[in-house]
Amino acid sequence: MNVFRLTGDLSHLAAIIILLLKIWKSRSCAGISGKSQILFAIVFTTRYLDLLTSFISLYNTCMKVIYIGCAYATVYLIYAKFRATYDGNHDSFRVEFLVVPVGGLSVLINHDFSPLEILWTFSIYLESVAILPQLFMISKTGEAETITTHYLFCLGLYRALYLFNWIWRFYFEGFFDMIAIVAGVVQTVLYCDFFYLYVTKGWFSRPYRL
């Protein structure tokens, strides 16, 4: 555990809670891609299956349970409780174009050809692109609420902080996980355009326009 890893995890947690609270308080999921949220629920489910097989630390277990719980709560709010406010027409990204190639890649390139390890790899690859339906939706409608941009910023910041965590771990522990690093770089790069807009336009303008 280092400062980048911890702040990365907390940033990730903040993003998840910001989104959940935004939907709950406004009683609306307008502008939120339900498809991205389903992908994140799949990501957490397939990655944290090791909850059942190995114990790493209380911190690790608690965070995993919280992430999974919040992911499903978000999906429930979007597709059940506040379904009437869900903007399905604008959430038109074809997720099969992500899931199928990612599934194939995780079978081909992994650390170990075992079910749990392939699912872990699948979750890493899928996470790197899971935000695309959300970014697609924003580019389609041309705007996002300020709070949605804070959500995206925290989510992007989390992966950027993980990159620093991996640099730290490489230098001080000699540890590196090439699959996580490459996917993490891809994931962070996807946010670069958004980061730029967030900093140059997003602070004060509302609603946020691309």
Partner: peptide
């Protein structure tokens, strides 16, 4: 020791 790869990160 763990069998296979251990993933301690989230």
């Amino acid at each position: 020791a763990d069998e296979g790869t251990s993933h301690d990160e989230l």
